[in-house]
């Protein structure tokens, strides 16, 4: 099942690139979703290799986390948009220094 894990690693790395590069908050959150999905893939593949249900259970928990995180994250995005008038992540840099 090595290819599955390699795929997961590749997807994870790509998601990380997306987080670092993009300035639109929505797209950053989207890149985080890519990374979470890659983790889920890794768990499922590993669970299948050992023949245990634990991998799928972990995947379900990751799903729950992703759902909660996305809802709160998008709520924050709405607030940022309302207060700063923009969805550029670089505008939220008042905690500098």
């Amino acid at each position: 099942m090595e290819q599955g894990l390699v795929l997961a690693a590749l997807l994870f790395a790509m998601g990380l690139v997306g987080v670092m590069v993009r300035r639109n908050i929505i797209l950053i959150l989207m890149s985080v979703e890519v990374m979470l999905n890659a983790c889920g893939l890794a768990f499922i593949v590993a669970g299948a290799r050992w023949g245990q249900a634990d991998g799928q259970i972990m995947f379900m928990l990751i799903l729950a986390i992703a759902a909660a995180e996305v809802s709160v994250g998008l709520g924050l995005l709405l607030q940022v948009h309302r207060r700063l008038g923009s969805i550029d992540i670089d505008k939220t840099s008042r905690l500098k220094g």
Partner: peptide
Amino acid sequence: IFYLVGAPFAAVLE
């Protein structure tokens, strides 16, 4: 991929 690996339930959830 999930379905191919033998976790159909996970595929549906995805």
